[in-house]
Amino acid sequence: MFLIVKLLRNIVKILQEDISPNQISLGFALGLFLGLTPGILMKTFFFVLIMILRVNVGSAFLAGAIFAIIGFVLDPLADKLGFFVLNISALKGLWTALYNMPIIPFTKFNNTLVMGNIVLSLILFAPAAFGMKKFIPYYRRRWRDKVANWKIIKILTGGKIAALIFD
């Protein structure tokens, strides 16, 4: 419950505050990888990338959480997609070379689910980034002030007590 409330507070903060839409959209797109790709090595890689790059961490984790849940639904599709990609004869040479490399096999890229989710993430990266980049200014123009007056938003963002609890 605490985590859900904290997540809501993060969403509200991202939407309501004056954070650069570029940082939010890029963070959101990278967070998509964090949520979809299985395996600790891949997640660590994208976590470090998110932390190093000046992108919005909150939007990245938000995307990560959302797409981790969506990932369960997308797994059958990812499995088929991964199987298709790993069996493209033109790419066999590439996969074999990667398979024989020192560290790459640890990513489990040869697993249909991992590969499928990577491909899905790549496909969704650009739409997610551009969509978010367009959505944030639109929201701020049309909805931010109205939403700011909601009681629940005031509780989540305004009070010192909320800041003490959630920050």
Binding site: P38, D75, D79, G82, F83, L86, N87, K92, W95, T96, Y99, N100, K108, N110, N111, T112, L113, V114, G116
Partner: peptide, 14 residues
């Protein structure tokens, strides 16, 4: 043995 997905095995050089 994996819980999810399928592992595709590629030729191993050495």
């Amino acid at each position: 043995i994996r819980l999810k997905g399928r592992d595709i095995i590629f030729p191993v050089r050495s």
